[in-house]
Structure formats: structure tokens, C-alpha cells
Design a protein around this nucleic acid. Structure first.
Length: 688
DNA sequence: CTTAGGG
DNA sequence: CCCTAAG
């Protein structure tokens, strides 16, 4: 349904094929061949061989593929048709293949109907064609010119692939062409050059096709404008299947086939009837009432939402159910959703559905972890929306985020060993929007006493295959969010070493190395996934709000400052919010200044950052601010633009407290007790 | 570890 | 904010 083939003939003699290619050539195991649709990324070598792409290459184009896929789905959905496909050989004998897509502008409201009608018309013709072919075969016993045979002929000699394209079918769909192409060069030894042998030209089988097309006989399982899939034979169903999905199927199960086709015809996964009525040249499905109920129950799959942009469509997922994606990380939640709506599926169907769901990406563990992290941190600030306890944001198939129940499978919530205590400093990933995509960038939350590390930026870089790198990262992370003792150990390790060069320790078997390693095994495991799944989540709505503990905005203010020792230290700047300041003041008024740890315990227990030292510093700044500038302004407007002016009352309060605290100790210490300020201090001594 | 102060 | 020294 959405195969895209873009072949470019590079000068270096390599045909780099980007896009999803069905290659079931001899390169793959027979088992795979039996399954006609095995998407695999290949590189076409200069000699025409198909070489399985290396992991790196896959990585390279992964995002592209994703994008391309969704793109193509849109193309298919909106009824756009492939208008031109040409295969020609360059002078060097290399294959050149060009596809151009006709863009049919269908009204958005009428898109679906037009699409369905188009499909219907096309299928109608195909059915007639198949029937005709069968007649021919019966009468003449000559080789049948079904698509299959045509393709096999291509494998023999001819570049017949174009046969279907050139048939007068008005709504030729790209997938069909693609499938033909692939079948053609798959049946031979995987060489494109053979297939595109130019001498023979287009095969004659077009004659039969045109004949069929000219003779429109309406006796084909279609009576009174009603297509009844139930009446079709397996072969006919196969044919339908092929024209619908652009690929063959070996499934003998008629019911399954009917379902498949019905799904495609109605653009919906939830197909409860295999009979379609044609009214006014429009396909309408029977039993719409019950289906509508289903649709509303599972908004993600609803047909009405399909008009969206390049997001992954469930319908298409169903279409490509046979696709084997190597990615084992299946969005089980989506699968569940799909299955929920597919009440009446047979076993095979269910399997297919599951595989279909594999098209959906499951958010990485990493990401889930990050989400949970944010969850635990901003737990108080989050509204108790339906997706609260789940990994809310990610899989957002459609743009309407509020409609779907994001049902996350239990496994998604399993948080591996890193139980982030509220106070623990753990790493989080921050979400950046890069080119319209939300990108996860792992970052480390505040680290105290972190030793100068030379390559902080290496945290941002990921080498897909670098296991060592991953291990390093893991260690780094562990070190960063490790327990306090851990960091202390780090200090002890790195401090005495007067060597100017600080090597990061991961490989070095230090005293606690094994400990760290054992701790970091899970971590590094997770880390390793980052490079693989650093992929983008389509829509990252709702970044954590900037309110109090906006971890997101906080994390991005990491600045690396060069230190004297040549290392870099991280410097976070988290602007103190008003709430924090008020809490601080309250804490000071309650516990008195200087008892910062207690204040932190009392008022800042919910904030993982803001150590007692921070409180102290902030208080110092507050004092400075409250006294220094001009008593009138209190630094309101005299401050620079960036810093939010501290409200007057707060500063007043600070001054009061400061006054007290400056007065009280001398009052007591200076044992002279002249009682001048005694009354005042007595009033406000309550906090002590 | 906590506090205080310098940078 | 970070770092360090002193309890």
C-alpha cells in the first residue's frame, strides 16, 4: 500500500535505494520468500546485486523511512494515483526508475468518498479482468495472463512490469506497481538488470487486459450494485487482495481475505461486514450502525481521523500486516487498542493484527523513564487527566490528543531498577523540538560535586554501534545520578590524582568500579537504547509547564564553565520562582536563617534541587536585593530586563526577617542589653 | 553532613 | 551557582 521506491543512479555506480522495498529475492531465506512482503532495506550495488543494508545504513535512513512511509500513506489515502512510472536504462546500463505521483486534489470532505469510489471502480475492473482471464484460460488453455504469470514472465525475460501500469485502469495505485516491480526482480536472482532488459519491450499480455477493460461485464459477484465478497472464490479474492494491497497473498482463508479487502475498501480496521452496497456510485458498507459504535469506542482507529497528516495510520498498519519489522519494540498499547476493536477476529487475523501493530513505534524505555521522572517530579502540578499515569505524550497517532485513551500496557510502566527517589538526582531527558519533531536529548539533572569532566558533550552524542561509548555513557550517567556516596567516591578518586588529565573512569577498574558497573548494568542497557531509538516522536505536546519545578526549562540552562583545572563544570541556572522564594521566606521565618537544611526539609522537600546551600545563597541574594539598591524601589525596576522583579511585599518581608536576625543575635550576644531594640526583637522572636 | 563565606 | 573551609 505504501511502498516507495526511489532509485537513484549515483555516479559511483551504486544504486542507492532509499525507501521500503519488498525484496524477496534469493538473498533471503525461503521462509521469507514464502511471505511476499518482507520489507527490508537494501542497497543496490553497481552490478545490480541487492545487498542487505548494514545496520548503519538502516540507522541512517531510519527516520527518513519513517517519514517516507507516513508520507506515502497520506498519498495513498487521499486517492492520489501514480501517473507515470518509467524504467529506462542509462547509458551505463544501470537501471533508472522514476516515479511521479499525480496529485489529485480531492476535496477534504469528499476525499474519503472519492477514494472509495475510485477503489471501487478499480476493483470492479479488476474483477472483470480476472474473470475474463479465467474464461480465456478455460477456453484456450493458453498460459494465463494473470498478474502472477506476467510477473513470472518478467522474470524470464521481459520487463513486463509495466503491463499493469499501462492498462487503462484509471486508478492505478502505486503499491501495485511497486509490487509488480518487486515481484519481477525477485523471481529472478535478484538482479534488476536482468529484469529491466530493454529489448523485449512491453509484453503482449496487455491485450488481454485491454480486452477485459473494454468488455465491461457486470456479472461478477456484483449484483445490483452490490459487491459481495462472500461470493468470490479464493482466487478472485486473491486478485482483489492484490489490487487492493499491491501484493500477493498466500492466505487461503477466504474470510481473512474478505476481511482484508473489506478493510481496505472501507478504510477501516473495523469491518464487520463483507458486503458492500453501491449506491449512487458510492460504496457504502453494510451494518454501519455497529461499526460506528466501534469507531467511537476506539477513536484512534476511527476512519474520520484518518485525514490527518503524516501520522501513522492504523488502517495502514493493518494493510501491511505482513511486514516484518525488525524492531521488536512494538507499541503494545496500540496493539491492544487495535485488538479491542477487532472483536471478531480469527486467530490468523489476530496474528496479523498484531503484526500490523508493529508498525507503531513503542516509545523507548528511556523515554518512558523520562516521563515517569517528570511524573514523579511534577506530580503535584499535573492535572489528573486520563493519561496521567501512563506515558502520556508519546504515541500520539493523531493530532487530537484528547480523544484517545492512551492505553499503555503494563510493561511500559515498569521502571527498571532506578527508582528515582524524589530527592535522588537522576538523569532525565529533555525534549527539544528540532525541526518539528520532539527530540529526546538526555541530560543530567543537577549534580552536586561533580568532578570536572572533559566531555560533557559526549553525553549528547550517540554512536549507534559504539558499545564502548554506550558503556561510558552508562557509567557517566550512573555517576551523575548515583548516590551521594558514589559521587563522594568519585571525588576521592579524582581529587588525589594530581594528574592534570582526568580520564573518565569507566574502563579503569577502580575501587568502586565493579560496584558502579553492577549498578550501571541496567543503566547502560537503557543507555544503549538511546542511539537506536533517539528517533523522534511526532508530536511532543505539553512540555512540562514552566511553573515551579519545570525540569525541562531548568535542564536546558546547563552551561559548562571552564574551570581552573582545565575541566569543565556544569552550571545550572534555575531561576527561582516566586513560589520558591516565598517558601524560602516562610522557612526562614519559621526556622530562622542558618538552619538551611531544616528549611529545606520543611519547605523544599518536594524539590529535588535546591540544596540547603542553594537556599542559603538565595537568601543571601534576597537580603542583598532587599537592602542594597534603593529602599524605595527594592530593585523592582532597577533590575535588568531578564530578572523578574521581586515583588515588594516579599522584599519587605525579607527585610523584616533580616532586621530581626541582624538584631537578635547582637541583642543577645551583646550582653549589655540596653533594651533599645529589645521590644522589637521580642515581638518577632517567635520564630525562634 | 551542615553552615558560612568567597568567587 | 559553584567551591571550599570549618564545625
Amino acid at each position: 500500500m505504501e511502498t516507495v521506491i526511489g532509485i537513484e543512479d549515483n555516479d559511483d555506480g551504486k544504486l542507492e535505494e532509499r525507501g521500503v522495498d519488498r525484496s524477496n529475492s534469493a538473498l533471503f531465506s525461503p521462509k521469507q520468500i514464502s511471505n511476499p512482503v518482507v520489507y527490508k532495506l537494501v542497497r543496490v550495488e553497481g552490478d545490480g546485486r541487492l545487498v542487505p543494508a548494514t545496520d548503519d545504513e538502516v540507522m541512517e535512513v531510519e527516520d527518513f523511512l519513517e517519514y517516507e512511509n507516513s508520507d506515502m500513506r497520506v498519498v495513498a489515502d487521499t486517492g492520489q494515483s501514480l501517473e507515470c512510472i518509467s524504467i529506462e536504462r542509462s547509458s551505463s546500463g544501470k537501471l533508472r526508475l522514476e516515479c511521479s505521483e499525480g496529485v489529485s486534489q480531492l476535496g477534504t470532505s469528499e476525499a474519503d468518498l472519492g477514494k472509495l469510489n475510485a477503489k471501487f471502480q478499480y476493483i470492479e475492473q479488476i474483477l472483470q479482468k480476472v474473470k475474463q482471464e479465467e474464461k480465456l484460460r478455460l477456453s484456450s488453455r493458453s498460459p494465463v495472463h494473470s498478474h502472477v504469470q506476467i510477473d513470472s514472465q518478467c522474470s524470464a525475460d521481459n520487463p513486463v512490469i509495466i503491463e499493469k501500469v499501462q492498462s487503462k485502469t484509471p486508478y492505478q495505485e502505486a503499491p501495485s506497481i511497486a509490487s509488480s516491480l518487486n515481484y519481477s526482480h525477485s523471481n529472478q536472482s535478484g538482479s534488476i538488470d536482468q529484469c529491466s532488459r530493454p529489448s523485449e519491450g512491453v509484453i503482449e499480455s496487455g491485450s488481454s487486459a485491454s480486452a477485459v477493460n473494454s468488455a465491461l461485464t457486470h456479472d461478477f459477484s456484483m449484483t445490483d450494485g452490490e459487491i459481495c465478497l462472500d461470493k468470490l472464490s479464493v482466487k478472485e479474492l486473491h486478485e482483489l487482495f492484490k489490487v487492493t494491497f499491491g501484493r500477493e497473498t498466500t492466505v487461503k482463508d477466504k474470510q481473512w481475505l474478505r476481511r482484508r479487502i473489506a478493510m481496505s475498501l472501507t478504510n477501516s480496521c473495523d469491518v464487520s461486514a463483507t458486503t458492500f452496497t453501491v449506491k449512487d456510485k458510492k460504496i457504502t458498507r453494510k451494518c454501519e450502525a455497529e461499526s460506528s459504535g466501534n469507531v467511537s469506542a476506539a477513536p484512534v482507529i476511527s476512519v474520520e481521523n484518518m485525514a490527518g497528516e503524516g501520522d501513522v495510520k492504523y488502517k495502514d498498519s493493518c494493510v501491511v500486516e505482513d511486514c516484518r519489522v525488525d524492531d521488536n519494540q512494538v507499541a503494545s498499547e496500540t496493539r491492544l487498542e487495535t485488538l479491542n476493536t477487532e472483536h471478531e477476529l480469527g486467530d490468523e487475523d489476530q496474528q496479523s493484527e498484531e503484526r500490523a501493530a508493529k508498525r507503531m513505534r513503542k516509545p523507548t524505555k528511556r523515554y518512558i523513564e523520562e516521563l515517569s521522572e517528570n511524573e514523579s517530579r511534577e506530580y503535584n502540578h499535573r492535572s489528573s487527566s486520563s493519561n496521567k499515569n501512563t506515558g502520556h505524550i508519546h504515541v500520539s497517532p493523531t493530532s487530537n490528543k484528547n480523544t484517545g485513551h492512551r492505553h499503555v500496557s503494563p510493561t511500559s510502566q515498569v521502571r527498571p531498577a532506578t527508582n528515582a527517589l524524589p530527592e535522588a538526582r537522576t538523569f532525565v531527558t529533555r525534549l527539544d523540538s528540532l525541526g518539528g519533531y520532539g527530540v529526546q536529548i538526555p541530560c543530567v539533572s543537577r549534580v552536586r560535586r561533580s568532578r570536572p569532566r572533559k566531555t560533557i558533550t559526549s553525553l549528547m552524542k550517540f554512536h549507534p554501534t559504539g558499545m564502548v561509548e554506550a558503556a561510558k555513557l552508562g557509567n557517566k550517567v550512573v555517576r551523575d545520578h548515583g548516590s551521594e556516596a558514589d559521587s563522594v567516591i568519585q571525588d576521592k578518586i579524582s581529587k588525589p590524582s594530581s594528574m592534570p588529565v582526568k580520564i573518565h573512569q569507566p574502563v579503569r577498574p577502580t575501587e568502586s568500579a565493579s560496584d558502579r558497573m553492577s549498578k550501571s548494568t541496567s543503566e547502560s542497557g537503557k543507555e544503549k537504547q538511546c542511539p537506536v531509538t533517539v528517533t523522534t516522536e511526532p508530536r511532543q505536546e505539553s512540555k512540562p509547564k514552566k511553573t515551579d519545578t519545570s525540569s525541562c526549562t531548568e535542564e536546558r540552562n546547563i552551561v559548562t564553565v571552564p574551570t581552573a583545572k582545565g575541566g569543565m563544570r556544569r552550571k545550572h541556572h534555575r531561576a527561582w520562582t516566586l513560589v520558591e522564594v516565598m517558601k524560602l521566606i516562610e522557612g526562614v521565618s519559621r526556622c530562622g536563617p542558618g538552619r538551611w537544611s531544616e528549611i529545606k526539609r520543611l519547605s523544599f522537600s518536594s524539590y529535588s534541587h535546591r540544596t540547603s546551600v542553594d537556599l542559603k545563597d538565595k537568601w543571601r541574594n534576597l537580603l542583598k536585593a532587599s537592602f542594597a539598591p534603593t529602599p524605595a524601589d527594592e530593585g523592582m525596576n532597577s533590575r535588568k530586563h531578564g530578572t523578574a522583579p521581586i515583588p515588594e511585599p516579599i522584599l519587605v518581608r525579607v527585610r523584616e526577617l533580616a532586621e530581626i536576625n541582624s538584631q537578635v543575635p547582637p541583642n543577645f550576644s551583646s550582653s549589655k542589653l540596653t533594651t533599645t531594640g529589645g521590644t522589637v526583637s521580642g515581638d518577632r522572636l517567635g520564630y525562634l
